[in-house]
Design a protein around this nucleic acid. Structure first.
Lengths: 342, 342
DNA sequence: ATGAAAGCGCTAACAG
DNA sequence: CTGTTAGCGCTTTCAT
């Protein structure tokens, strides 16, 4: 360990032959500093290897330039993408993101938020569980720190929130199938407890009715997000309801599974008839969080939740709130993007 | 906005009828404080809703309790798991993790490290790209902040590093296949530029030789991590080398693809002969980063890189380094875990 | 067992 | 344009 003595703006000031306040002004680029002095100071900084202590800066100045981000589950591609969007936008503005995983434990959210606040963040973005949204917002308000929320479904009053339009996504997908001539459209995947799924199923159902098409509750099947289960489920579904001509898949894994299921069903069904039917006529459509390479391998059209754009919006929003905390809360809903093959 | 005036230990001290230093001692649990006063102070804290300003604490005391973590790609399950392990261990010790994504841009690593340091972290963990390892360590040394590295393959001198034993993992897998009677074992997946792959292939190759088994370079095939490509590759491989009886897969996606490829090959091959051969005799083994549900669906044995444990070790290591920065650097290699189906 | 006082490194008025 | 000065909120000797 070399353990060089810590270098402060005092050292820089001395080396550059100016006062500390001049150094400070150069650092923050605020004051009207002659380019000559500015140059001299920068050289001293460079030469001494000075790194500014932001804790002190923040303690004194009140702004840290850091945004706290609490994410429920970084492993989910949706949140990973969201985080990427947030980080990119914020870093381009010279800010830094202090990320913490909440591992979905909604009850430990408050202490984590307080941690963040006590670290001096300028604002907080909470993505995922909104379990105690209002409560959290109040806690933050108390310390004068703005909070913005993001989630995949549902909404809360009295908080600043950005979320995807799940219903519209389902409508787009369903309409697209209808326009391609499909009349008997089924739903596969997701757990009925999921709010995201509920919203999507809602959009699917509404669109069917809007076009005067049949909706059968047996055509909406739950299924875990595993290829195997999806493959099996699709086999059963089609055997029991052979007239179904299109399937809406809850996510990309289910879609992949459904695709293999169609292949397999084709293989094991009685020859030519069923096989040709499945392979050629059952269309697939799906929801995805990010552009997925896996989906390129199968004939399918899908919608993408604009996770990255959501992240960027969140970044913008929190910065607005920091600059003008008084501005009113809003609920911003983001449209999906349709991807079709040829 | 309620914008309550900021509450400091002065307010708490006043409310509790003690001095600020007493409050400080209670906060850090250090001094010998009578339980009566302690109680009184805690009540005041509770009552006023005081949250301690850690920036000030850190500025004065020199310790922030925060560890910076730079991760190359959080979307990769390996790093997500690693992060989870790190966070869990560190938080259980009352520390906090300041996570930042580096998006794999090795050149922006240094500024990010400096950012972290200027935020007052007590230590830094860098996971992923070790491109400029030594350089980064020196930069950190200069400010007296310990750094620990983690990666999936390769190593660097002069840094504290934890990594998985890829070679051993390959040995375990290969030996297991050999003990199950396989003699002609192929390799599928990964890009030849990957160091991780190189290490694994090395272990596979070494084990074959050790048991006096044949190694053919045509049996080692590259393949993108997509099910489709893997399925096709496995078909070609087996058609050209029908005697192969087992395949080592670079990761779980390749394994899934290989599995479907075996099924398909069985279907399209000339009846009974090839089909039974493929379905019953070609064994699959794979490398995985985390316990993958997808692998439960196919007959396979696999090894898991102990990502979570690696995270925990990293956490331990950085804490040791913080407490005793002088302790010598080490290279810690972690063993994989084998998972077999009965 | 508790209090008084001296800063940590920096920014923000205010002077010049 | 640049220097002086007074703290930001907290920890930490050193007294008591």
């Amino acid at each position: 360990m070399t353990m060089t003595k810590k270098i402060t703006i005092n050292d820089v000031a001395q080396a550059a032959g100016v006062s500390v306040s001049t150094v400070s002004l150069v650092l923050s680029g605020k004051g009207r500093i002659s380019s000559a002095t500015g140059e001299r100071v920068n050289q001293a900084i460079e030469h001494l290897g000075f790194v500014r202590n932001r804790q002190a800066a923040s303690l004194r100045g009140g702004h840290s330039g850091v945004i706290g981000l609490i994410v429920s589950d970084l492993r989910a591609p949706f949140y990973a993408e969201l985080t990427a969007g947030i980080t990119a936008r914020l870093e381009s503005q010279g800010r830094m993101v202090f990320l913490i995983q909440s591992a979905g434990e909604a009850d430990r959210l408050l202490p984590r938020l307080e941690m963040l606040i006590s670290q001096g963040v300028d604002g907080v973005i909470i993505a995922g569980s909104l379990a105690h949204g209002t409560e959290l917002r109040q806690a933050a308000d108390r310390s004068g720190i703005p909070v913005v929320f993001a989630c995949r479904a549902s909404y809360l009053d009295e908080v600043d929130l950005i979320r995807p339009d799940n219903m519209q996504a389902a409508q787009i997908l369903t309409e697209q199938l209808i326009q391609r001539g499909h009349q008997r459209i089924a739903w596969l995947g997701g757990q009925s407890a999921s709010l995201t799924r509920a919203e999507r199923v809602g959009g699917y159902c509404a669109t069917l009715l809007k076009f005067g098409l049949p909706f059968h509750s047996e055509w909406v099947v739950e299924c875990e997000s595993s290829q195997k289960q999806a493959a099996e489920a699709v086999g059963i579904l089609l055997r029991q309801n052979p007239t179904i001509s299109a399937i809406l898949c809850y996510n990309s894994v289910v879609a992949m599974g459904a695709w293999f299921g169609l292949l397999r069903a084709g293989k094991h069904g009685d020859e030519s008839g069923i096989e040709r039917y499945f392979e050629q006529q059952v269309a697939l459509a799906a929801f995805a969080d990010v552009p997925e390479r896996a989906l390129d391998d199968i004939p399918i059209s899908w919608v993408i939740t604009p996770a990255k754009e959501m992240g960027e919006s969140l970044a913008e929003r929190i910065m607005q709130r920091i600059e003008n905390n008084a501005c009113e809360l809003r609920n911003h809903i983001m449209s999906p993007r349709l991807v079709t093959k040829n």
